[in-house]
Amino acid sequence: MAFRTPRQNAQGMGSAGYGTGHWWMQRITSIALIPLTLLFVFPFGQALGESHAAVLALYSSPWHALVAVLFIGVTAHHLMSGLQVVIEDYVHSKGWRTGMLLANTMICVALGAAGIFSVLRIAFSA
């Protein structure tokens, strides 16, 4: 038995079928990425091109590992929602669109998981 009125089911959902959640998550991840980018980029840039031992030494520090994990996780989400909008804007064929949106979700989640797993492995094995 449906307890919700039809109006309640429609309210705040918009024509896309869901609410402002996607837009709002983009803003939240944007704001989070301002400090995270500033904290992540410079140590990462310094580690790039260094020896394997130097890289392990840097990311075995809990501080740098935590910053890297947060940066990679939030970036993966931000990248996924951004690419989703681009695909929705430019890919009009239903089949291609669904396929690319699926691929986008899977690739971005996989990249985020791979990045976080790698940093944690470095951090915990040192």
Binding site: L48, L111, I122
Partner: peptide, 21 residues
């Protein structure tokens, strides 16, 4: 730049993965 940074993210994650491997 947003779409292009996908490439940078892939390279960065690959580099971290290699460092862990």
């Amino acid at each position: 730049t947003g779409v292009g940074l996908f490439v940078g993210f892939v390279l960065g994650v690959w580099w971290f993965f290699a460092a862990a491997a």
